[in-house]
Design a protein around this nucleic acid. Structure first.
Length: 382
DNA sequence: CTGTCATTAGTCAGACAG
DNA sequence: ATTACTGTCTGACTAATG
């Protein structure tokens, strides 16, 4: 079959923070983090300079979305609580997220790549896979040309990994970050991949990594040296076989160039933990508003949903979900609210709650006729 | 009639990722 | 005073169906 593929993974460098630096070039070279809630925009001073919020000024429940490499050097990484990161880097600049600007840069860099290589798998706002198999150009030259096109279109740098498959390219793009190109063949696996920590493999997260370490498996090489029989007894038939394959760099997954969404959801963490009885009015208002936002998203994207679900996270961080499959698809806010309310009745409400979410799944395209029927689903009569 | 097996839908939790 | 938000996937379990 077509096993001589040439697949690239392109990952924008410190994406959100880099977009912010385009707007505030005076911050280049400084520790900057993007994230938080209710973080104020920089304020122009009478003398013409700008006043930026500092991490030490922050109070709340936000986390870091992205940090510059200077901030990472201080131990401040994405996903970290802002209150905690403020202890490590109190003087770091804190900027609010501007998703519209990130979406625009994202659109621009993807269009720039598509003008060179049209076969692209979208992997979110700041990364893509690119199939370079059918492009007759030397690999390194092609990679530099793509990087230059991205820079010309956005003013931003990226890192590219190129190998025979998605698994290896994803690992590669991270090896020489930022602004790097890494090209790898199957023969390079023992030297370049086996020394890496097992959790560098996309799909091995903190839990699996911890379990592997329990068996003395720390690197990809350790994993490759473990028998598939052992892995299957410890991790199950499917996962065990997968671990053995990825350890040897084997991955035949095709690029997925188009897909339909499976679910649409909205959730929100409160400023303070709320109690089902004491804060009933407040909770009810948030709940309804989440339902309305899901309905809005559904209609905007043209879908109706057959399964409505909710999610609660309690003060102790433990979370529960409930969902309900309806006899007919819905897209209306009031109907979503009704179904979500049924779900809420099936959940314990003794402990305080920190987060509430609403999700719509079982999506089907919202046809014009069902819109005309004003939300009454037109089911085919028997 | 009873038990078993296969298959599917629904539900829920948890892992993972960007 | 630590821990966002959106989305996908999978495993485990139950119930229903044949």
């Amino acid at each position: 079959m077509n096993s001589d593929r040439r697949i690239a993974h392109l990952d924008m460098d410190a994406f959100f923070a880099s977009v912010e630096l385009l707007r505030y070039p005076e911050l280049r070279g400084q520790a900057v983090v993007v994230g938080g809630r209710n973080v104020h925009q920089p304020v122009l001073q009478p003398d013409g300079s700008k006043h930026f919020a500092r991490l030490r000024d922050y109070a709340g429940r936000g986390v870091i979305t992205t940090s510059t490499y200077e901030a990472r050097a201080l131990g401040v990484f994405s996903g970290m609580g802002l209150m905690k990161s403020a202890q490590m880097a109190p003087d770091a600049i804190l900027l609010p997220a501007n998703f519209d600007a990130y979406r625009e840069s994202s659109r621009l860099f993807k269009a720039a790549v598509a003008s060179i290589a049209p076969k692209i798998e979208d992997r979110g706002i700041d990364e893509i896979y690119i199939d370079l198999t059918d492009i007759p150009e030397e690999t390194n030259t092609l990679a530099r040309r793509i990087k230059q096109a991205v820079f010309d279109a956005t003013g931003l740098t990226c890192s590219i990994g190129i190998s025979p498959n998605k698994l290896l390219s994803k690992i590669c793009s991270d090896l020489e970050k930022p602004n790097g190109i890494t090209i790898l063949s199957m023969e390079d696996i023992p030297a370049r991949i086996w020394p890496l920590a097992a959790k560098k493999i996309n799909g091995i997260g903190p839990k699996a990594s911890e379990r592997l370490a329990h068996y003395g498996i720390n690197t990809v090489g350790d994993l490759a040296a473990t028998s598939v029989e052992f892995l299957v007894t410890k991790f199950g038939r499917v996962t065990g076989a997968w671990l053995a394959r990825v350890a040897h760099g084997i991955d035949e997954r095709p690029l997925v160039t188009e897909s339909e969404p499976k679910s649409i959801s909205r959730e929100s963490t409160f400023e303070r933990d709320l109690h089902a009885r004491q804060d009933k009015a407040e909770l009810s208002e948030i709940f309804t508003s989440l339902c309305m936002r899901v309905a809005d998203d559904l209609k905007r994207k043209g879908y109706a949903s057959k399964t409505i679900g909710i999610k609660l996270r309690y003060a102790d961080f433990h979370s529960v979900t409930r969902d309900l499959t309806l006899p007919v698809s819905v897209s209306d806010g009031a109907e979503i609210r009704k179904a979500a309310g049924e779900c809420l009745k099936r959940v314990p409400l003794t402990q305080r709650i920190r987060l509430l979410g609403v999700r719509a799944s079982g999506l089907s395209p919202l046809t014009q006729s069902s819109v005309d029927l004003h939300g009454i689903q037109a089911e085919l009569p028997l």
